[in-house]
Write a protein that binds this DNA or RNA. Structure first.
Length: 273
DNA sequence: AGCCAGGCCCATT
DNA sequence: AATGGGCATGGC
């Protein structure tokens, strides 16, 4: 299947830190797992060649119907965001599986992206269904709830094993991610934070990357630093960064957050290395 | 080698 | 309500 897309860059999307199961094959050519599908995306310009999922799933997963050009134009009234957007013009917010995002971001706490990817992969391999070749789907709540805390630890999640274990039990006992996703953002967040291992930042990630709550604004160490440096001009606590950012960036604060996150990390790569 | 990682839990105040 | 120590493990 070939599709014409705009405001889309598969490399930026796959490397944006919102997903952990996409891997590079070649230049502008990635492979990822979407639910029980092995998906391949190869892009040249505005033409994207897709294998493994149908058009409807592609449009849904990559949020194709949303006009990111309009959102970017809105944010380009802001000089700082304008330069951030230049780094990641093709970023889009993925519509991922709720349970997978929840567990993945519980793992993300005080962790680094390469190791998060390894852990998510190990969990899929050990507890998920085999889909084809050596590819495994992320486990369902029922499948993952069969894992002991020790088995989870063997997947490299460290002290987060307990969090995952308890959260799985809660989901299995009726905590309904689909139901709470229908709640307004503040109530939804409050519910998510009842789960073990889910604080403010993880809850925001779950809402943004799997529940289409685009006004969620996850504040991690990177975002805190960049907001303090470029906007606030002083050191403040995380709640203040969140309050300030949501007020400033409005309905699509989460998308602004992704541009900024991508920007700081690219800048770090360029200068740091 | 040693610091740090897309934070959260929990005890203390 | 606010603060701070502790946390498994490995990437760089």
């Amino acid at each position: 299947m070939k599709i014409n897309v705009s405001d889309f860059n598969i490399e930026q999307i796959a490397e944006s830190g919102q997903c952990f199961r996409w891997n590079k094959i070649d230049d502008m050519h990635y492979m990822g797992i979407i639910e029980h599908n092995v998906c391949e995306v190869k892009q040249s310009g505005n033409i994207v060649e897709v294998h493994g999922i149908d058009e409807e799933k592609f449009i849904n997963y990559f949020d194709i119907k949303r006009d990111y050009n309009e959102i970017k134009r809105f944010y380009m009234k802001d000089d700082i965001l304008t330069s951030a957007i230049k780094y990641g013009e093709g970023i889009r917010i993925l519509n991922q599986d709720k349970f997978e995002v929840l567990i993945s971001f519980i793992i993300s706490a005080n962790n680094n992206i390469p190791r998060i990817k390894k852990s998510v992969e190990a969990i899929s391999r050990r507890f998920g269904q085999k889909i084809e070749g050596e590819f495994y789907a992320f486990p369902t709540p029922l499948e993952l709830s069969k894992a002991t805390e020790e088995e989870l630890k063997a997947c490299g999640v460290g002290f987060r094993a307990r969090y995952i274990y308890k959260t799985c039990k809660d989901i299995l006992n009726g905590f309904d991610l689909d139901e709470i996703s229908k709640l307004p953002i503040s109530e939804c967040k409050k519910e998510l934070m009842k789960l073990t291992g889910v604080g403010s930042k993880v809850a925001d990630c779950v809402m943004l990357f799997s529940m289409q709550k685009f006004d969620a604004f996850p504040v991690d160490v990177w975002i805190k630093r960049i907001m303090e440096e470029l906007y606030i001009k002083s050191e403040v606590n995380i709640k203040e960064v969140e309050r300030f950012s949501k007020e400033r960036f409005k309905d699509y604060a989460g998308i602004a957050q992704q541009y900024l996150f991508f920007y700081v990390r690219e800048r770090e790569k360029a200068t740091g290395q």
